[in-house]
Each structure stands twice: as C-alpha cells, then as structure tokens.
Amino acid sequence: MGETFLLILLLIDATVRVATPLLLAAFAGMVAERSGVVDIGLEGKMLAGAFAAAAVAAVANSAWLGLGAAIVVSMSFALLHAYACVTHNGNQVVSGMAINILVAGLGPTLAVAWFGLNGITPALEGAGRFIGLNLPMSEWLAPIPLIGPVYAEVVSGHNILVYLTIAILPLVALLIYRTRFGLRLRAVGENPHAVDTAGISVAALRYRAMLLCGFLCGIAGAYLSTAHAAGFVRDMTAGKGYLALAAMIFGKWKPVPTVAACLLFAFADALQIRLQGVVLPGIGEIPVQVIQALPYALTVILLAGFVGRAVAPKASGIPYVKDK
C-alpha cells in the first residue's frame, strides 16, 4: 500500500509539472479565441518567451528579469499578430504560423550570435533559475498519515511559477465570466457587429485580448526554459502550443473543462514516462511502443467518444469588417 500510494503521489506531482505550461498556453488560446482571434501562434510565442527568459536570465543572472523579458517578448509577438489580423484583417492562421516559423529560426540564430552556442543558451544556475520551494510546515505535517505525504510530495516542492499559475488561472476565468471586460470580450467573439453597434471598439477589445494572451504565453515560455529545464534548446516547446490548442478545443473554450483536458494530457504523459519498464502484476512488462502511444490513443478515444460537439465562438477566425 505504502509504496503504491507514494508512486501515485509522485505521478500526480509530475502531472502538475508537465501541465503548467499547457494550462497557461491553453488559457492564452482561450482568451484569444473568445475574442474572435484564432491564435495558432501559441507555440511560437511560448518558444520566444522561453528564449528571451533563458537569454536574459543567463546574462543578468536573474530568473525574475528573465520572466519579465519573456512576457515582454511574447506580448510583442501577440501585438504583431493583432496588427496583422485585427488592424489589417489578415488571415489569422497564416499570421500565427508565420510567427511559429519565424521564432523557430530566430531563437537558435540569436543564440549563435549572442552566445556562440548553436541553438542553445548557456546552462542556468543559482539565481538564474526558478527552483523548487519547500513550503513551510511540510516537516511538521510529515508524520500525519495521508496528509503528510500528500503535502510534501504534491503540494510542496514546486517552483514559484507553478503556484503563480495556479493563482492566475482562476483570475483569468473570473475576468472572462464575471467582469464587464469579460462580457464584452465574449460578445466580440460571438457577434462583433452588436458590440460595434453598442459603441465599443472591436479592435481595441481584440488587442487587449491578444496582450493577455501574450502575457500568459510568456510565463509558459519562461517556465519551460528557466524552471522546468535550465536553458533554451532549439524547439524546446516540442508541440506544447498545439497540444494546448487541442486541450482548449477539447475543453470547449471553457475554463474548467480546459483545465481538465490539460491535466489529462499531462497525466497521460507522466504515466507514459513511469510505465516504461515497470512490470504490471498479471500483465508483465508492457512493450515501450505501446506505452509511448498511450497519450495519443487516449486523446483519440476521448475526442471520439466522450467530448461531443465542440462549438467555437461564432466570430472566431473571421476578421471584423465594418458594414459600409
């Protein structure tokens, strides 16, 4: 019992670590799409954030400055996307893809130019990284069965960005559903004409949504390069931006189901890592290939069987052009 219980706790612990960037990116995508802007460039913004965070943290030896730089850079790319798609009514998928491709090449190129390393930034140490925090009371709680280990393994020991994410996500959800800005944001994604008729600027709302989107992607990027890993590596987002988009669609553009979808993806990934080479009672050792296909198989099964129809915000992906 004891060991299995600990294994489950460690599995949940890993799920939280893997889910953090997914959650941030999925919420970023949600904010953008609820305002009517499809943002396929989550991947690129995250990668740009990861590079900026790692580069600044390496030079300034401060993870916080790195985080700031990541947010600024990611928001700049979000503004670029908004400028192309909102101001000039450009195709949103093309613009997003362009950002992804641009960043994929730009990061490694700048790394070569600035650090003389090919596609990577120097390994971060000490103050250049967000390291795990041991929350107070974990030793005091340790002897208590159930609560002690849960507190020590799952709740405590993460880096500050994980806790920050847990704090930010409900705020974003509240912003979308419980504020005047949120009401307008949702309206502009469903029926921009009505919003415009009410005398509210569609463009300004979408710009603000994109800024928020960039902000969240920046944190996700900084998490990847300065908290989860210790430096930027070429293509280190490894498709997490697209996975986040899938999680958002999976979650029907709503906060709580989106969180559930992200946690599910992260859990499948963590499980996949831990099941390799483990002998299951009664079954024996499962072939690695089967285990590595697990997250994908799980996604297909759930998408096909359990999710049902996912309806996007009506105006999502359509540039708003005023009737003449």
Binding site: A14, R17, I273
Partner: peptide, 12 residues
C-alpha cells in the same frame, strides 16, 4: 532534442 522530457524521465 527534448531535455525537459529527459529531466522528467530521470526524476521518475
């Protein structure tokens, strides 16, 4: 080319 996954594997 996936250091975060490598880190997770090592931790596991």
């Amino acid at each position: 080319n996936d250091p975060t996954k490598g880190g997770e594997l090592a931790r596991s």
